[in-house]
């Protein structure tokens, strides 16, 4: 049997806003097996980044449970949580704002080691920093440079080395390649994939780029305005999308080929995430929406095996 490393149950995160509660993450549940990658996709404001931060308790959840290796981490004390951070890490989107500009490469990479008192001996710590730099493919001569002297790809490698400096097993990758040029993006994606094989890492891979997520993930969860609307193994999701939103999303990706495909162009504007009504949040942009969609909130239902979808009409539309 496969081993579940992280399980999230009914996770909610509401923010206070002047107009009421903003439902950034609304009742999201999923589980990830050790060594696998869960891709979380969605457009800006769908709550994917918030989900990642809530899981690491960089933001406190409003409600719900997060089990890491069977322990409900929402109940852990600050000290216990700090201990757990040695295993749970994050890689940020923006390699330009996620590294302290006043620290050198070596200072950035060794900071987690010092803070967690992992290696006390200065020389050994230095060797460890070099080892990490080799691991992520950073030339050793860059050890005393500052991040602003380096390009985006190298900076992202620093961020990865920093995340691996502890006894990392689980990493939330928050749009790790979105800010990079295509050729560099491929370098970083390959690096993350190799590291996963080498170190047995488990990833949550948050992105808005569906081609990246398809290439990278074992399972994919699609989010729309704080809700998970569809979840399935990547292969299944991309070959057989069921939710109308997933279908539109997939068809909207510009493909670098000449054979033209039909596009679903969505009409209408995104509903406000502030105090949303308990109806289908996609209803006003959905070409299949009917009365029931504007009356009731759809729940996740199993399509087949691991494939789940939250849509009132999926059975009809499938048939």
């Amino acid at each position: 049997m496969s081993k579940i490393i992280l399980e999230v149950k009914n996770l909610k995160k509401y923010f206070d806003s002047p107009k009421g509660k903003l439902h950034a993450v609304d009742d999201v549940s999923f589980a990830i097996e050790k060594g696998k990658t869960l891709g979380v996709v969605g457009e800006s404001g769908c709550g994917k980044s918030t989900t990642g931060r809530v899981i690491l308790r960089l933001l406190e959840a409003t409600d719900g449970e997060i089990f890491y290796k069977g322990v409900n981490i929402r109940k852990l004390s600050a000290a216990k949580m700090r201990e757990l951070r040695r295993e749970m890490q994050i890689i940020f989107q923006d390699p330009f704002s996620s590294l302290d500009p006043r620290n050198t490469v070596s200072e950035i990479i060794e900071e987690p080691i010092i803070l967690n008192k992992l290696i006390k001996n200065k020389k050994q710590r230095f060797e460890r920093v070099l080892e990490l730099m080799d691991l992520v493919g950073l030339s050793r001569r860059l050890i005393n440079t500052y991040p602003h002297e380096l390009d985006g790809g190298r900076r992202q490698r620093i961020g990865i080395a920093r995340a691996l400096a502890l006894n990392t097993e689980f990493i939330v990758c928050d749009e790790p390649v979105s800010a990079l040029d295509v050729s560099i993006q491929a370098q970083i994606l390959n690096l993350l994939k190799n590291l996963q094989h080498k170190l047995g890492l488990t990833y949550i891979f948050i992105t808005h780029d569906l081609s990246v997520v398809n290439h990278f993930s074992d399972d994919v969860a699609v989010m729309y305005l704080g809700k998970m609307v569809e979840k399935a193994p990547a292969e299944e999701l991309f070959s057989h999308p069921v939710h109308p939103y997933t279908q539109a999303l997939l068809s909207a990706i510009p493909r670098p080929t000449l054979d033209k495909h039909e596009k679903i162009i969505l009409k209408g504007e995104i509903t406000s995430p502030i105090e949303p009504e308990p109806i289908c949040r996609f209803a006003n942009r959905c070409r299949y929406a009917e009365d029931i969609c504007r009356r009731e909130e759809p729940q996740l239902e199993t399509v087949e095996g691991e494939h789940e979808v939250a849509c009132h009409r999926w059975r009809e539309l499938e048939g």
Binding site: L58, S98, D100, E111, L115
Partner: peptide, 26 residues
């Protein structure tokens, strides 16, 4: 609100470390 502050929290830094080492120098 810079991400490197969040990044410091993610590796287990306490508030006073964050303020003294990252917030003030910057």
């Amino acid at each position: 609100d810079q991400e490197y502050i969040e990044s410091a929290r993610a590796i287990g830094a306490r508030d006073h470390t964050i303020i003294l080492k990252h917030v003030l120098p910057n």
